[in-house]
Every structure is written in C-alpha cells, then in structure tokens.
C-alpha cells in the first residue's frame, strides 16, 4: 500500500475529495428529490393532484339545471340549445355552491347579445347576425326571448316599433 501511494499521496487525496463530493451529491439526491418523483414519468406524481385540486369557477350547465328547471328546459328545445348558461350569465360556481353567497346579476341584453350577433365578415355566413343600423332600435329582449329565440320577434312590442318608424 505504502509503495503504491509513494509520490502519489496528493492524487489519492484529491481522488478522495471527488469521492466525498460524489457521496454528498448522492446523499443530497436521496434527501431532496421530491416524493413521488418518477412514479408515472419524469415528474412529481403529486403534480397531477395539484392540477386537479384547482377550484372550479364555472359550475357547468348541469349544475344550473339542478335547481333552475324551466329555463334550461326551454333552452334545450330552442336555437340556443348549445349555449351554456354561463356563456351569458357568467361564471357561477360560487352561486351553485351556495346560492345565498352570490346572486347573479341579470346580463345587459343591449351589449350581451351583440357579443355574438353583431355582424362581422369573419363570422360564418350561416350564423344569425345583425347590423344595428338596419335593425329596429331597442333592447333585444323586448322582442326576442333569449331562452327561446325565434326569427320572428315576439308579437307584442312589434307594433310599437312600427309606429315609431312611421
């Protein structure tokens, strides 16, 4: 041994330092690599649950139908069948969770309807679009029922519009 180390003590000491360094590294890995790392792949398995645990903000139309039977029922038979409740009424998981906590505001039909129905050349041509300048004035919902829209407006207010036009 002594013979082997002759004139090389410093090299063996340096090698020893490297070994110590390597052991420290291996030890640190054993301690600091997070739990569940590599269970499914090269990531922390707990990250899946972290992503899942995010709170809901939109309740989803099924939750709405749970309490509000009538409007969703009417909607289903109408041209707006595909429109989810929260598409117009906003995110309402808080309300679905506890109706007392949040009372949803009625959407402003003057602006809301135009979000979808304002004419725009980029919209698919088959989609119902209006240009406010060549459409009777007024709030959309005076003539159209958003939960059961129809091409022809509701009859009652129509004469008013016509008289105004005269």
């Amino acid at each position: 041994m002594r013979h082997l180390m002759k004139n090389k003590v410093h090299l063996f000491r340096m090698a020893g330092l490297f070994v110590v360094g390597f052991l420290v590294f291996a030890g640190a890995r054993a301690v600091f690599v997070p739990e569940g790392f590599g269970v499914y792949g090269h990531y922390r398995a707990g990250a899946l649950e972290d992503n899942r645990a995010f709170p809901l903000v939109h309740a989803g139309r099924a939750a709405c139908a749970g309490c509000h039977g009538d409007e969703p029922e009417a909607l289903k038979a109408s041209r707006h069948a595909k429109v989810g409740c929260e598409a117009c009424h906003g995110a309402l998981a808080v309300h679905a969770d506890d109706p007392a906590k949040l009372t949803p505001k009625k959407p402003d039909a003057k602006t809301l309807c135009l979000v979808c129905h304002m004419a725009n050349v980029a919209k698919p041509s088959g989609f119902k679009q209006i240009s406010p300048e060549d459409h009777p004035e007024g709030v959309c919902t005076e003539c159209h029922d958003p939960h059961s829209p129809a091409d022809a407006p509701k009859p009652a207010p129509a004469p008013v519009q016509k008289e105004a036009a005269k």
Partner: peptide, 19 residues
C-alpha cells in the same frame, strides 16, 4: 490547496505531468 501534501519530489512532479 496542497491538500496537506508537501511532496514535490522529481518523481511526484513527473507523475503530475503525466496525469
């Protein structure tokens, strides 16, 4: 820095040179 080794004999320096 010398790792406590005082050996700078011809032989040891020759080994250093090789390494």
């Amino acid at each position: 820095m010398s790792l406590g080794v005082d050996d700078i004999s011809e032989e040891s320096l020759a080994i250093d040179q090789k390494v």
